[in-house]
Design a protein around this nucleic acid. Structure first.
Lengths: 202, 202
DNA sequence: AATTAATGTTTACAGTGTCAACATAATAAT
DNA sequence: ATTATTATGTTGACACTGTAAACATTAATT
């Protein structure tokens, strides 16, 4: 560390941090490698010593964001230590809330390179129990025994998973993207949907 | 039309057509104005005589695609001329099917500039009854009188709309993006979810 | 027939991701 | 301790992008 101007103490971490900030501020569309480099006061090719490509940096940022997301979901679970259904409902609410409050993460999670990045991510660092979709999925599985439909039959686990996840995911996107317009408190409406006695009371 | 090489008979329509094709083939990420221009055998700035910007062309393409989407939804409605609930279920199925078969349209519809383009579109040419989300929304409204929850109470229209739309939208995205992995026929599973006696049987 | 508008082309510019060649600092091997 | 090696930075170049300005040609209007 003799010449402070040459070696940036921890550039890799800084690129992720500043990159996430840039993404928040300017949006996915206006995100560029060179801007991130400039934000870190470093030459425009310096990131290549730490990331293979732009997509690779975005992937790293996405992983970072997933950790935040996962934390939100787990906090929701912990609100209802012994009630599986309430866990799942609370988690659905947190799921929507997270994306409504961080709409830019939607693109990061689900659009960065359409399945490619996310697929890679799933197979790598997030498979060690920190994957939010696993967190969500597991909560669904814990409920499975407790759910019947109106005829008292048990429910197809796959149909239930798709249904729960789809509902929550769809609401999050529609609201975050402002496609669903409603003249009131969106999150309150979500609460109503999830606790209406229909969700999970198949 | 004396010199065929100079004036391209109907460049505007051709740009939209070839643009849509390019989008299908190369994906949103690799879509470029110059490629579309080249596909139309025209200089790279010619599109600017018909569209203000790249986003403006994409918007026009998105409108074109919405018409296709809308057609799918209306065909679904017409399968059940007098049964509002069946109309809505069939429409939900068509909704998912459309995006599963045309995954690239997801980005076009919901990511082209995050609400900006779509918002413009909603306020312009698609407000004349051709807007698919209106088609969907109206089907929901037609059902409203027929739906009660388990306690026999009528359901908050807004909660119902968000719930129906959200479920279908979410399933479409999760499946199209291959985030929901299932070892079987996805569309059959969707059918099961929608006809399980839970959807619309609040 | 002359003027104007519509629709093309060429050229130029700044911004992008990425690669190759080079420079410096930190580390390992002698 | 000196040297060789590796890690991490910089500079410069390239092809590609969107877009604006200046110019050219054809179609439409007067």
């Amino acid at each position: 560390m003799s010449n402070e101007n040459y070696h940036h103490e921890n550039l890799k971490a800084d690129l992720i941090k500043k990159g996430l900030k840039l993404l928040d501020e300017e949006g996915y569309e206006n995100f560029s490698l060179r801007k991130v480099a400039k934000a870190c006061s470093v030459s425009h090719t310096a990131p290549y010593r730490h990331f293979d490509s732009k997509d690779d940096l975005i992937l790293a940022i996405a992983i970072e964001a997933h950790l935040k997301f996962n934390q939100c979901l787990e906090e929701a679970v912990n609100k209802h230590p012994k009630d599986n259904k309430s866990q799942l409902k609370e988690m659905g609410y947190a799921y929507v809330k997270f994306f409504v409050e961080n709409p830019e993460y939607l693109r990061l999670f689900f659009l960065s390179d359409f399945a490619n990045n996310l697929k890679k991510m799933n197979h790598e660092s997030l498979l060690n129990g920190e994957q939010p979709f696993n967190t969500f999925y597991q909560a669904i599985e814990r409920c499975q025994g407790e759910i019947q439909n109106r005829e008292g039959e048990s429910v197809d686990p796959n149909a239930m998973a798709l249904s729960c996840w789809g509902l929550v995911h769809g609401m999050a996107i529609l609201i975050a993207k402002k496609d669903f317009s409603y003249d009131g408190d969106y999150l309150e409406l979500v609460r109503k949907v999830l606790w209406a006695g229909t969700f999970l009371d198949l």
